[in-house]
Design a protein around this nucleic acid. Structure first.
Lengths: 151, 151
DNA sequence: CCAATTTCAGAGTAACTGATATCG
DNA sequence: CCGATATCAGTTACTCTGAAATTG
Protein backbone atom coordinates (compact mmCIF):
# COMPACT_ATOMS: atom_id res chain seq x y z
CA UNK A 1 0.00 0.00 0.00
CA UNK A 2 0.92 3.62 -0.52
CA UNK A 3 2.03 5.12 2.76
CA UNK A 4 1.34 8.70 1.82
CA UNK A 5 -2.08 8.85 3.31
CA UNK A 6 -4.80 9.51 0.81
CA UNK A 7 -6.10 7.42 -2.04
CA UNK A 8 -4.77 7.94 -5.51
CA UNK A 9 -7.50 10.26 -6.65
CA UNK A 10 -8.75 13.21 -4.71
CA UNK A 11 -11.86 15.27 -5.35
CA UNK A 12 -12.52 15.45 -9.08
CA UNK A 13 -9.97 12.79 -9.83
CA UNK A 14 -6.72 12.99 -11.70
CA UNK A 15 -6.51 14.17 -15.25
CA UNK A 16 -6.45 11.69 -18.09
CA UNK A 17 -3.12 13.10 -19.19
CA UNK A 18 -1.54 12.55 -15.78
CA UNK A 19 -2.76 9.01 -15.64
CA UNK A 20 -1.33 8.14 -19.02
CA UNK A 21 2.04 9.67 -18.19
CA UNK A 22 2.34 8.09 -14.79
CA UNK A 23 1.18 4.69 -15.88
CA UNK A 24 3.62 4.81 -18.76
CA UNK A 25 6.47 5.62 -16.44
CA UNK A 26 5.41 3.04 -13.91
CA UNK A 27 5.12 0.37 -16.55
CA UNK A 28 8.31 1.20 -18.38
CA UNK A 29 10.67 -0.09 -15.75
CA UNK A 30 9.07 -3.49 -15.29
CA UNK A 31 8.59 -3.72 -18.99
CA UNK A 32 12.27 -3.02 -19.67
CA UNK A 33 13.39 -5.56 -17.14
CA UNK A 34 11.20 -8.27 -18.59
CA UNK A 35 12.28 -7.53 -22.15
CA UNK A 36 15.91 -7.50 -21.13
CA UNK A 37 15.69 -11.25 -20.64
CA UNK A 38 15.08 -11.51 -24.38
CA UNK A 39 17.64 -8.88 -25.35
CA UNK A 40 15.00 -6.41 -26.53
CA UNK A 41 14.25 -2.80 -25.72
CA UNK A 42 10.73 -1.42 -25.57
CA UNK A 43 10.86 0.30 -28.97
CA UNK A 44 12.36 -2.83 -30.50
CA UNK A 45 9.67 -5.08 -29.10
CA UNK A 46 7.01 -2.63 -30.19
CA UNK A 47 8.37 -2.51 -33.73
CA UNK A 48 8.47 -6.30 -33.94
CA UNK A 49 4.89 -6.50 -32.71
CA UNK A 50 3.71 -4.03 -35.31
CA UNK A 51 5.51 -5.95 -38.04
CA UNK A 52 3.87 -9.17 -36.99
CA UNK A 53 0.50 -7.66 -37.72
CA UNK A 54 1.48 -5.56 -40.67
CA UNK A 55 4.28 -7.18 -42.57
CA UNK A 56 6.06 -5.19 -45.26
CA UNK A 57 5.81 -1.72 -43.78
CA UNK A 58 8.56 0.75 -44.70
CA UNK A 59 10.60 2.61 -42.11
CA UNK A 60 8.56 5.74 -42.72
CA UNK A 61 5.29 3.87 -42.27
CA UNK A 62 6.49 2.23 -39.08
CA UNK A 63 7.48 5.63 -37.76
CA UNK A 64 4.10 7.17 -38.51
CA UNK A 65 2.25 4.34 -36.86
CA UNK A 66 4.42 4.66 -33.78
CA UNK A 67 4.11 8.44 -33.60
CA UNK A 68 7.86 8.94 -33.78
CA UNK A 69 10.09 10.41 -36.49
CA UNK A 70 11.65 8.29 -39.25
CA UNK A 71 15.02 9.32 -37.86
CA UNK A 72 14.15 7.72 -34.55
CA UNK A 73 12.75 4.61 -36.16
CA UNK A 74 15.76 4.01 -38.36
CA UNK A 75 17.92 3.38 -35.33
CA UNK A 76 15.51 0.76 -34.10
CA UNK A 77 15.11 -1.16 -37.36
CA UNK A 78 18.86 -1.00 -38.06
CA UNK A 79 19.58 -2.77 -34.83
CA UNK A 80 16.93 -5.39 -35.44
CA UNK A 81 18.22 -6.00 -38.95
CA UNK A 82 21.79 -6.51 -37.72
CA UNK A 83 20.55 -9.10 -35.28
CA UNK A 84 18.75 -10.96 -38.02
CA UNK A 85 15.25 -10.75 -36.62
CA UNK A 86 13.99 -8.66 -39.50
CA UNK A 87 14.93 -8.26 -43.17
CA UNK A 88 14.48 -5.22 -45.36
CA UNK A 89 14.07 -5.59 -49.08
CA UNK A 90 13.57 -2.99 -51.78
CA UNK A 91 9.99 -2.74 -52.95
CA UNK A 92 9.57 -3.97 -56.53
CA UNK A 93 7.72 -0.86 -57.62
CA UNK A 94 9.93 1.63 -55.83
CA UNK A 95 13.55 0.80 -55.09
CA UNK A 96 13.88 3.60 -52.57
CA UNK A 97 11.31 2.08 -50.24
CA UNK A 98 12.52 -0.81 -48.08
CA UNK A 99 9.83 -3.25 -47.01
CA UNK A 100 10.45 -4.73 -43.59
CA UNK A 101 9.52 -8.26 -42.55
CA UNK A 102 10.12 -10.58 -39.63
CA UNK A 103 12.51 -13.49 -40.20
CA UNK A 104 11.70 -16.95 -38.81
CA UNK A 105 14.15 -16.18 -36.00
CA UNK A 106 12.32 -12.94 -35.36
CA UNK A 107 9.00 -14.74 -35.22
CA UNK A 108 10.36 -17.22 -32.69
CA UNK A 109 11.83 -14.48 -30.53
CA UNK A 110 8.60 -12.53 -30.58
CA UNK A 111 6.51 -15.56 -29.65
CA UNK A 112 8.61 -16.22 -26.56
CA UNK A 113 8.61 -12.58 -25.56
CA UNK A 114 4.88 -12.17 -26.11
CA UNK A 115 4.07 -14.86 -23.59
CA UNK A 116 6.05 -13.11 -20.88
CA UNK A 117 4.50 -9.76 -21.68
CA UNK A 118 0.99 -11.14 -21.66
CA UNK A 119 1.50 -12.16 -18.05
CA UNK A 120 2.63 -8.67 -17.21
CA UNK A 121 -0.40 -7.14 -18.84
CA UNK A 122 -2.72 -9.47 -16.96
CA UNK A 123 -1.18 -8.34 -13.68
CA UNK A 124 -1.67 -4.70 -14.54
CA UNK A 125 -5.29 -5.20 -15.47
CA UNK A 126 -6.05 -7.46 -12.53
CA UNK A 127 -8.17 -4.80 -10.83
CA UNK A 128 -10.07 -3.81 -13.97
CA UNK A 129 -13.21 -5.95 -14.18
CA UNK A 130 -13.06 -8.07 -17.31
CA UNK A 131 -16.32 -6.59 -18.60
CA UNK A 132 -14.66 -3.17 -18.59
CA UNK A 133 -11.46 -4.12 -20.34
CA UNK A 134 -12.85 -4.00 -23.83
CA UNK A 135 -14.25 -0.58 -23.20
CA UNK A 136 -10.93 0.57 -21.81
CA UNK A 137 -9.15 -0.62 -24.91
CA UNK A 138 -11.77 0.92 -27.15
CA UNK A 139 -11.44 4.26 -25.46
CA UNK A 140 -7.68 4.22 -25.74
CA UNK A 141 -7.93 3.31 -29.41
CA UNK A 142 -10.21 6.31 -29.90
CA UNK A 143 -7.58 8.57 -28.33
CA UNK A 144 -4.90 7.01 -30.52
CA UNK A 145 -7.01 7.80 -33.54
CA UNK A 146 -7.12 11.45 -32.58
CA UNK A 147 -3.36 11.53 -32.29
CA UNK A 148 -2.77 9.72 -35.59
CA UNK A 149 -4.97 12.11 -37.45
CA UNK A 150 -2.92 15.14 -36.64
CA UNK A 151 0.20 13.99 -38.44
CA UNK B 1 -6.37 10.44 -41.82
CA UNK B 2 -3.65 7.88 -41.61
CA UNK B 3 -2.38 7.03 -45.08
CA UNK B 4 -1.06 3.61 -44.22
CA UNK B 5 -4.16 1.75 -45.21
CA UNK B 6 -5.69 -0.20 -42.36
CA UNK B 7 -7.40 0.95 -39.22
CA UNK B 8 -5.42 1.32 -36.03
CA UNK B 9 -6.31 -2.03 -34.57
CA UNK B 10 -6.13 -5.30 -36.42
CA UNK B 11 -7.65 -8.61 -35.44
CA UNK B 12 -7.58 -8.99 -31.66
CA UNK B 13 -6.65 -5.38 -31.16
CA UNK B 14 -3.53 -3.82 -29.80
CA UNK B 15 -2.22 -4.58 -26.36
CA UNK B 16 -2.99 -2.30 -23.47
CA UNK B 17 0.70 -1.74 -22.94
CA UNK B 18 1.23 -0.60 -26.53
CA UNK B 19 -1.63 1.80 -26.34
CA UNK B 20 -0.35 3.43 -23.20
CA UNK B 21 3.14 3.82 -24.60
CA UNK B 22 2.08 5.18 -27.93
CA UNK B 23 -0.50 7.54 -26.52
CA UNK B 24 2.06 8.82 -24.06
CA UNK B 25 4.53 9.50 -26.84
CA UNK B 26 1.93 11.06 -29.06
CA UNK B 27 0.72 13.31 -26.29
CA UNK B 28 4.12 14.30 -25.03
CA UNK B 29 5.04 16.52 -27.91
CA UNK B 30 1.89 18.60 -27.98
CA UNK B 31 1.92 18.71 -24.24
CA UNK B 32 5.49 20.02 -24.16
CA UNK B 33 4.74 22.67 -26.72
CA UNK B 34 1.74 23.92 -24.82
CA UNK B 35 3.57 23.99 -21.51
CA UNK B 36 6.51 25.78 -23.07
CA UNK B 37 4.31 28.87 -23.37
CA UNK B 38 4.25 28.94 -19.57
CA UNK B 39 7.91 28.05 -19.11
CA UNK B 40 7.14 24.63 -17.66
CA UNK B 41 8.23 21.10 -18.51
CA UNK B 42 5.92 18.10 -18.16
CA UNK B 43 7.46 16.85 -14.91
CA UNK B 44 7.37 20.38 -13.49
CA UNK B 45 3.73 20.84 -14.37
CA UNK B 46 2.92 17.42 -12.99
CA UNK B 47 4.66 18.17 -9.70
CA UNK B 48 2.83 21.49 -9.34
CA UNK B 49 -0.48 19.76 -10.01
CA UNK B 50 0.18 17.16 -7.37
CA UNK B 51 1.14 19.84 -4.87
CA UNK B 52 -2.06 21.73 -5.49
CA UNK B 53 -4.03 18.72 -4.31
CA UNK B 54 -1.66 17.57 -1.64
CA UNK B 55 0.19 20.46 -0.14
CA UNK B 56 3.11 19.77 2.17
CA UNK B 57 4.47 16.60 0.59
CA UNK B 58 8.17 15.91 0.97
CA UNK B 59 10.44 15.25 -1.98
CA UNK B 60 10.40 11.54 -1.22
CA UNK B 61 6.61 11.48 -1.08
CA UNK B 62 6.29 13.37 -4.34
CA UNK B 63 8.65 10.89 -5.95
CA UNK B 64 6.68 7.89 -4.75
CA UNK B 65 3.43 9.30 -5.97
CA UNK B 66 4.95 10.01 -9.36
CA UNK B 67 6.57 6.60 -9.65
CA UNK B 68 10.04 8.08 -10.07
CA UNK B 69 13.10 8.04 -7.81
CA UNK B 70 13.76 10.77 -5.23
CA UNK B 71 16.94 11.56 -7.17
CA UNK B 72 14.89 12.36 -10.21
CA UNK B 73 12.37 14.38 -8.29
CA UNK B 74 14.96 16.51 -6.53
CA UNK B 75 15.99 18.07 -9.83
CA UNK B 76 12.42 19.03 -10.57
CA UNK B 77 11.62 20.60 -7.22
CA UNK B 78 14.97 22.39 -7.09
CA UNK B 79 14.17 24.17 -10.33
CA UNK B 80 10.69 25.07 -9.20
CA UNK B 81 12.01 26.41 -5.91
CA UNK B 82 14.57 28.62 -7.65
CA UNK B 83 11.83 30.11 -9.75
CA UNK B 84 9.77 30.91 -6.68
CA UNK B 85 6.71 28.86 -7.54
CA UNK B 86 7.16 26.54 -4.59
CA UNK B 87 8.73 26.82 -1.14
CA UNK B 88 10.24 24.09 0.97
CA UNK B 89 10.29 24.34 4.73
CA UNK B 90 11.64 21.96 7.34
CA UNK B 91 8.91 20.01 9.06
CA UNK B 92 8.51 21.03 12.69
CA UNK B 93 8.70 17.48 13.95
CA UNK B 94 11.51 16.37 11.72
CA UNK B 95 14.09 18.86 10.46
CA UNK B 96 15.35 16.48 7.81
CA UNK B 97 12.03 16.42 5.96
CA UNK B 98 11.27 19.43 3.77
CA UNK B 99 7.59 20.10 3.21
CA UNK B 100 6.84 21.54 -0.19
CA UNK B 101 4.07 24.04 -0.92
CA UNK B 102 2.94 26.23 -3.80
CA UNK B 103 3.58 29.98 -3.47
CA UNK B 104 0.89 32.46 -4.55
CA UNK B 105 2.90 32.95 -7.74
CA UNK B 106 2.90 29.19 -8.26
CA UNK B 107 -0.83 29.04 -7.79
CA UNK B 108 -1.35 31.75 -10.38
CA UNK B 109 0.95 30.07 -12.86
CA UNK B 110 -0.76 26.74 -12.40
CA UNK B 111 -4.23 28.23 -12.87
CA UNK B 112 -3.30 29.74 -16.21
CA UNK B 113 -1.58 26.57 -17.36
CA UNK B 114 -4.42 24.34 -16.26
CA UNK B 115 -6.88 26.11 -18.49
CA UNK B 116 -4.74 25.50 -21.56
CA UNK B 117 -4.20 21.87 -20.68
CA UNK B 118 -7.88 21.25 -20.08
CA UNK B 119 -8.54 22.23 -23.70
CA UNK B 120 -5.93 19.77 -24.85
CA UNK B 121 -7.45 16.99 -22.84
CA UNK B 122 -10.89 17.70 -24.24
CA UNK B 123 -9.53 17.39 -27.76
CA UNK B 124 -7.93 14.05 -27.00
CA UNK B 125 -11.10 12.65 -25.50
CA UNK B 126 -13.35 14.06 -28.19
CA UNK B 127 -14.05 10.63 -29.65
CA UNK B 128 -14.66 8.94 -26.32
CA UNK B 129 -18.38 9.14 -25.52
CA UNK B 130 -18.85 11.17 -22.37
CA UNK B 131 -20.65 8.29 -20.67
CA UNK B 132 -17.50 6.21 -21.07
CA UNK B 133 -15.01 8.75 -19.81
CA UNK B 134 -15.60 8.06 -16.15
CA UNK B 135 -15.12 4.39 -16.71
CA UNK B 136 -11.93 5.06 -18.65
CA UNK B 137 -10.56 7.13 -15.81
CA UNK B 138 -11.65 4.56 -13.24
CA UNK B 139 -9.89 1.79 -15.11
CA UNK B 140 -6.70 3.79 -15.42
CA UNK B 141 -6.82 4.59 -11.72
CA UNK B 142 -7.13 0.88 -11.02
CA UNK B 143 -4.00 0.23 -13.06
CA UNK B 144 -2.19 3.04 -11.24
CA UNK B 145 -3.10 1.40 -7.98
CA UNK B 146 -1.47 -1.83 -9.07
CA UNK B 147 1.70 0.05 -9.93
CA UNK B 148 1.76 2.04 -6.69
CA UNK B 149 1.42 -1.08 -4.61
CA UNK B 150 4.59 -2.66 -5.86
CA UNK B 151 6.94 -0.01 -4.49
C1' DC C 1 11.68 20.48 -59.68
C1' DC C 2 9.00 18.40 -56.05
C1' DA C 3 7.56 15.04 -52.64
C1' DA C 4 8.64 11.01 -50.12
C1' DT C 5 12.03 7.90 -48.28
C1' DT C 6 16.31 6.73 -46.17
C1' DT C 7 19.93 7.69 -43.20
C1' DC C 8 23.98 10.18 -40.79
C1' DA C 9 25.20 13.39 -37.11
C1' DG C 10 24.54 16.14 -33.10
C1' DA C 11 21.58 17.80 -29.17
C1' DG C 12 18.46 17.45 -25.44
C1' DT C 13 15.17 15.58 -21.98
C1' DA C 14 14.17 12.81 -18.34
C1' DA C 15 14.86 9.12 -16.25
C1' DC C 16 18.30 5.86 -13.87
C1' DT C 17 22.16 3.90 -10.38
C1' DG C 18 25.69 4.88 -7.03
C1' DA C 19 27.32 7.31 -3.16
C1' DT C 20 27.31 10.52 0.83
C1' DA C 21 25.42 13.09 4.74
C1' DT C 22 21.89 13.92 8.15
C1' DC C 23 18.20 13.06 11.27
C1' DG C 24 15.20 10.39 14.66
C1' DC D 1 23.06 1.06 14.15
C1' DC D 2 18.94 1.25 11.16
C1' DG D 3 15.67 3.41 8.18
C1' DA D 4 14.19 7.38 5.81
C1' DT D 5 15.31 11.66 3.75
C1' DA D 6 17.94 14.84 0.90
C1' DT D 7 21.11 15.59 -2.63
C1' DC D 8 25.47 15.45 -5.65
C1' DA D 9 27.49 13.10 -9.62
C1' DG D 10 27.74 10.36 -13.59
C1' DT D 11 25.30 7.54 -16.99
C1' DT D 12 21.84 5.77 -20.06
C1' DA D 13 17.73 5.49 -23.09
C1' DC D 14 14.89 7.49 -26.38
C1' DT D 15 13.59 10.99 -29.11
C1' DC D 16 14.29 15.24 -31.57
C1' DT D 17 16.09 18.69 -35.29
C1' DG D 18 19.12 19.47 -39.15
C1' DA D 19 21.03 18.02 -43.32
C1' DA D 20 22.11 15.20 -47.39
C1' DA D 21 21.36 11.61 -50.92
C1' DT D 22 18.05 8.87 -53.72
C1' DT D 23 13.96 7.80 -56.29
C1' DG D 24 9.63 8.38 -59.00
Amino acid sequence: MSTDGEAIDGAGGPRFIYLIGRIDRGIRQDFETRLDAFGLTIPEYTALSVLQRRSGLSNAQLARRSLITPQSMIGIVSGLEERGVIVRKAKASHARVLETRLTPAGRRLLAKTDAAIQEFEDELLADVPSEHRDLLRQSLVAVMGRLQDRR
